[in-house]
Nucleic acid binder design. Sequence first.
DNA 1: TCCATAGTTCAACGAATATCGAAATATTGG
DNA 2: CCAATATTTCGATATTCGTTGAACTATGGA
Lengths: 122, 122
Amino acid sequence: MEQTDVVAALAALAQENRLQTYRLLVQAGPEGMPAGQVASELGLAPNTLSFHFDRLRQAGLVTVRREGRSLIYAAQFDTMNALLGYLTENCCRGVSMSCAPQTCAPAARQPKTLSKRKTETV
Amino acid sequence: MEQTDVVAALAALAQENRLQTYRLLVQAGPEGMPAGQVASELGLAPNTLSFHFDRLRQAGLVTVRREGRSLIYAAQFDTMNALLGYLTENCCRGVSMSCAPQTCAPAARQPKTLSKRKTETV
DNA sequence: TCCATAGTTCAACGAATATCGAAATATTGG
DNA sequence: CCAATATTTCGATATTCGTTGAACTATGGA
C-alpha cells in the first residue's frame, strides 16, 4: 500500500460520520446495506451521506452495487487489512521492537533493569 | 479508546508530512529525536513542523521533552496500539468474521454453498 | 551581557471540508 | 406514462487545514 493511499484511507476514516458509517458497514458484513438504511440509522441527510460515501469509496474502503432502487454499500475489508498492515509495519516491524498479534508493543525499555519484558511474545 | 479520540488520532495521521513525521519518530524509538532533525530529514520549515507536532501531540501520538536547546519528540506507542485495537475491533471482533493476528480477514464468502462459515471463530 | 541556536507563536491566505437546500437522476409500481 | 422512492448532483456557506514570513522565547556559550 502506497503512502498516498494510506493517507487517503486515514483521512476517509478521520471523520465521525464516516467512521460510524464504515463501522456500520463492517457490522453489516460483505452483504452490505442500502444507503438509506445507513442514513436513517445514523440520522444523516441523504445528500450528506452521499458525500461521505464518495470519500469512503475513493479511499477504496467501500464498494457499491445497485439492487433495485437501492444502492448497497459494503465494506472493502482488504483495504482495512492493508491499512492495518501498513500501520503495524511502521509501528513495529523493521524497527527495533517486536509486535504482538495486533498489539504493536512499544518495547518500552526503561533505562533500568528490565531487559526481559514480554518482548519475546512474538 | 473513545471514538472521538480515534477520529483525532486518524486525523493526525491523515496527512503526508505528519505520517512521515510519526513514522520517523517510530523508527527513532522511545528515545525520540529533536525537532530540528525531523525538520531537516523531511525538509520542512520549522514552524510548519511545529504546527504538525502540535496536532500529533494533541492526538496523544507523540510526547515532548526538552534536552538542552532541543525539544525531543518521541512516539507514544500506547496510542497507536489503542488505535489499532479500535480498528481491528471494529473490523472483525464482535462481528460475524474472524480476525487473524492483524489480518482482519474479510470472511469472503462466495454466494454459493458456504452456509457454514468460520463464524464460530469468535 | 551579547550572540547564536532551537523552536514556537502570530497573522494571513488559499485550499479543502462538512453540511444544507433545492434540483436532477434512476428505478419500480400502477 | 405518471407518481413515488432512493440517491446523487449542484450551488452556497461557514469552518478547518497547511503553509509561509516575521516576530518572539528559551537555552547555552563566549
